[in-house]
Design a binder for these strands. Structure first.
Lengths: 254, 254
DNA sequence: TCACATGAAACTGTCGACAGTTATCGCGAT
DNA sequence: ATCGCGATAACTGTCGACAGTTTCATGTGA
């Protein structure tokens, strides 16, 4: 599938800041890749894309560089760029890292949310409920992102960047149909609530437990959907690490 | 200090792959920034740099984009790029994340190193000793990097990328004079040995403990050097998280 | 029918130039 | 002396074009 056809019906690029076309292009392509609209394996030909987006190849190439640095696009010299995907192992390890960092983030944030942040997180949580019931998954995603972001808000800039990057990467593999089961949705909303309560009330330990539980659930469903029966050894190890396997039931098998 | 003067005496850019000037430029500048040769605050003027490096501005700008994505260089539209530095808080949180990820990495790698990797790590450890005694800190850094890399080698691609990035970022703030005290050096070599032993023998729990201890020591020294008396709350929280503060001596103070 | 060479077409990487924006310096007013 | 203001210089962002590389189709031989 050519990139031209993929973008055919879609609304074109909107250049936010005419002083920097390349960042708009970057944001545009990044969104399309992360949302899954441009699936892994798609070839991105510079000339074609430049024509479709009505920009020259210079800013387009700069956007490519940024996407490459994020690991979203291949970077072989003199070869077409290709949208990259994650295999099961990469997905597993990505989630393992996300769980550790986001749990750490929740712990750092526990008891340190401002009144305003608490209000905003509560609003996001409510918004998630509303948009889900309305079937507006695009808006749900936005609210969900904001909610998670607020719960790790005191992590410090470098960590926040990584967390966001990981979260977006894994979003690509969360299939919408995993949300459509109302029962599962309710359960996940309760998980969100549990994390929120722990962080808000300053219970760092509980925040870690709830965050790890929540994310590992996602991880298992996502990996199971893409590689049935594989299991999630990386995620499991991360959980052991975080959830204090103080017992000597050592789980390291050569 | 202009970038032209900074690079004056230094040996110029060596273009590895003439098919992609931009990646050579990126690697070149990245090294200079990470090694501290180009300090934070330095202004990078495109025309001047392009002249000094004898490349056109197009590949140079693409290299800039990559550096920006890594957080090494500023990205204000229509403004000169500036080499960015980390403040104490960012440094603290960077180390906290590095500790969690690298400990997780050590745990994932524990008992899974190949014979070849064990041999290689042992060689790197010996090399660190040799280069230190010879005062060849550049080579020491290379060996040190390789050693750490091998001990987290089974982490999965995405996590490895982040770990490397964090490690390099923090390297900028490790001052050489912290190494010149022989007694400290011996102690750190013992720490390295302890991590190595734990990972090699498949003791994941010990690997985490030793790795966390080792890195947190570095973190404290580095932060203390740059912000005396500040302490390392982020790192401390990460340690609590990793080292099983199962006791209810909760350390979350609103 | 298949493997392989060959040339054309398509694509990537780089360059110099132009347009628009920001910084700088000098001048005048307060 | 200090602040504001304008003209000029310096710099960034984008573009179209050229050179080098890869890909693909076509034809040739076994």
């Amino acid at each position: 599938m050519s990139i031209g056809e993929l973008l055919a019906g879609r609304e074109g690029l909107r250049i936010e800041d005419p002083r920097q076309t390349s960042v708009s292009v970057h944001a545009y392509l990044r969104d399309l890749i992360i949302s899954g609209a441009i699936p892994p394996g798609t070839q991105l030909k510079q000339a074609e894309l430049a024509r479709v987006l009505a920009v020259s190849r210079t800013p387009l190439r700069e956007a490519f560089r940024m996407l490459q640095e994020e690991g979203l696009v291949s970077a072989e010299p003199n070869q077409r760029s290709v949208v990259l995907g994650l295999d099961a192992e990469a997905l597993d390890s990505l989630y393992a890292a996300r769980i550790t960092l986001e749990s750490l983030g929740a712990r750092l944030t526990a008891g340190r949310m401002t009144r305003e942040e608490v209000r905003s997180a509560a609003a996001a949580h409510k918004e998630m409920d509303r948009t889900y019931r309305a079937g507006d998954y695009a808006s749900w995603t936005v609210a969900h992102r904001r909610f998670h972001r607020l719960l790790v808000g005191r992590s410090g800039a470098p960590v926040l960047r990584t967390i966001s990057s990981y979260a977006e990467q894994s979003e690509r593999y969360v299939r919408i149909d995993q949300l459509t089961n109302t029962q599962d949705f309710e359960a996940r909303q309760r998980e969100h609530q549990a994390i929120f309560d722990a962080v808000r009330h300053g219970d760092g330990k509980a925040a870690v437990v709830e965050m790890a539980r929540h994310l590992s659930g996602s991880a298992r469903r996502v990996v199971e959907a893409h590689a049935p029966g594989r299991g999630t050894p990386f995620v499991d190890a991360a959980l052991d690490l975080l959830l204090c396997d103080c017992s000597d039931a050592a789980s390291d098998s050569g």
